[in-house]
Nucleic acid binder design. Structure first.
Lengths: 140, 140
DNA sequence: GTTTCTGCAAAATGTTTGCAACCGA
DNA sequence: TCGGTTGCAAACATTTTGCAGAAAC
């Protein structure tokens, strides 16, 4: 995905191309699982004066046009990532707070079951599993 | 679970039995998937003057002694429920925000896979799935 | 030239903390 | 009595909003 695609997608929905939007998209792509704060920090390293509220508003737009998505990794802020990356599950350890990524295929059967039994169409990108990771489960 | 059990569990860990703790536990059991606000409202209906910060502190204690647990249902506040109830999954529709409950057995295979391939021990009670529910998926 | 965007400041949420008074054991 | 617990107020953290000026097209 290149600069051009951002501009095009924005225009298609009546939005305008701005430097801030490019900076935020770049930051989301560079950092992975970053929250609004992290993104502001990254953006600020490249251009001064960008405001946090712009980050929030921009993430909302980028999500709407389908270039980024977010998950809730438990604690505070949401974690944003580029939709250009292959989808993956998040395994969050409640003890050490580490986040492991896993291929979405692991959930294929589960997702199919939810569709069959509840007519529920799962957003796998947004699937976060909480529990104890390999290292921590032994400490119990 | 009865009043007596709360007092006993509290004492076992060096905590004290108080009217507020009973009220909060009762509220969590009565309401399901309630956030701190809802719980305060319920408690206040029975006894005046209880403070929100007490709700937070009490929920923390009740969770520690294993009588309540919480999940994140997406939006704002966490949702608390009694651990006396049978565990269930939460299916949250991103469009209409409705929460459907589903038996944890549906995730049994998925959970087993995560254990086998990643050594990850899933907390099924905390498993929330986001997506489009039966009614909303057709609107796309 | 219009309309959208942005920065700024303030407001709205949601949660935590310090502290003196209170209460349970 | 002693130490855990609570109410209150203030502090925090995060996200949202109103608005005037700046920027996009």
């Amino acid at each position: 995905v290149q600069d051009g695609e951002l501009a095009e997608r924005l225009r298609q929905r009546g939005y305008r191309m701005t430097a801030q939007r490019q900076l935020v998209l770049d930051a989301v792509r560079r950092l992975d699982h970053a929250g609004p704060d992290d993104i502001l920090a990254d953006v600020s390293r490249r251009e001064q004066g960008v405001n946090l509220s712009t980050i929030y508003r921009t993430l909302e737009v980028l999500e709407e046009i389908g270039l980024v998505a977010h998950t809730h990794l438990g604690h505070g802020s949401p974690a944003y990532h580029s939709t250009a990356l292959p989808a993956h599950l998040h395994l969050v350890c409640r003890r050490c707070d580490r986040v492991t990524e896993a291929p979405t295929e692991l959930a294929a059967g589960f997702v199919a079951t939810l569709a069959a039994e509840h007519g529920f169409e799962t957003d796998v990108r947004h699937l976060t599993v909480f529990g104890d990771c390999e290292n921590c489960k032994e400490d119990r």
